[in-house]
């Protein structure tokens, strides 16, 4: 079995004075789709942001592709290049003038000091290929602010796809989509995962999707309550532990 893409060891994260995530440990194997589930306020997004170095962690270690994430959130640029992160609700100031092609191109760049025209042709080709793969090349000249919710999600996937990656971190990526667009998003995501061999770590509230499509599940409510395959983890007992007994009774009655 190949080395895990991500190793999280005893991570604790504080938000102000309280521990939002306490002593969480898990690994994400290469090519596997791992879901983090838990109620609102359970620390799922906090955990993901600490893993990426967006939020500081109080203690614990994180290794991405075998490289340690420093306490201040630094990671080697070569490793950063192999991770893509899609945040919960991709909100940005819609007055910012940026086209789809420019935005997807940002996913290709290495983001160190470089001349603005570096990579010119290779960059253009990679952007065209990525947009074609998500069936959105026709949108390349559109301003990002003019896209519909479903189109925007496809563009975000193109941003991930524009360079070969090993790990995709998604924080409720399909949030805000209607049922049909959400199912289309997951269809495309799983197809790309198969084609690209991505390992995925995603926060999700959709337990049915997790049961259907994910290889592993982490149940979290500030601490790690259980982990394993969906069949093993999403039992009424574990769900009751994570979400409370009311939730399990409600799901059974549906």
């Amino acid at each position: 079995m190949s080395d895990p893409v991500l190793v999280v060891n005893g991570v604790t994260v504080y938000r102000e004075a309280y521990a939002a995530v306490q002593n969480v440990s898990f690994t994400v194997p290469a090519g596997m789709d791992t879901a983090i589930v838990g109620p609102n306020g359970a620390g799922k997004s906090t955990l993901i942001q600490a893993i990426l170095g967006i939020l500081p962690r109080r203690s614990g270690d994180v290794f991405v592709l075998g490289q340690p994430l420093s306490p201040s959130g630094k990671l080697s640029p070569a490793v950063r290049q192999q991770i893509a992160y899609l945040p919960q609700n991709f909100l940005f100031d819609r007055r910012i003038p940026i086209t789809v092609r420019e935005f997807v191109g940002l996913g290709w760049d290495r983001l160190g000091l470089q001349l603005p025209w570096t990579g010119g042709k290779a960059r253009r080709q990679a952007v065209q290929q990525a947009l074609t793969q998500v069936d959105a090349w026709h949108l390349h000249q559109q301003p990002v602010s003019a896209l519909s919710g479903g189109e925007l999600k496809r563009i975000l996937l193109a941003y991930c796809l524009v360079r070969p990656r090993r790990l995709l971190v998604l924080d409720e990526a399909p949030a805000g989509l209607d049922v049909r667009s959400e199912s289309e998003f997951y269809r495309l995501l799983h197809q790309l995962k198969k084609d690209q061999g991505w390992a995925i770590l995603q926060v999700s509230h959709d337990l049915d999707m997790v049961r259907r499509s994910c290889d592993r599940v982490l149940c979290i409510n500030r601490t790690l309550l259980c982990q394993g395959t969906p069949d093993h983890s999403l039992t009424p007992e574990n769900l009751s532990l994570a979400y409370g007994p009311e939730f399990v009774r409600y799901r059974h009655s549906c």
């Binding site: 990426l52 170095g53 967006i54 945040p87 940005f92 470089q114 971190v169």
Partner: peptide
Amino acid sequence: IGLTLRSQILLTLHESMAIARGV
């Protein structure tokens, strides 16, 4: 601006995505 153009654009657009990319 020339040498950090891409970082500046991503940072202006979405701070968390910029940090995740190592900016």
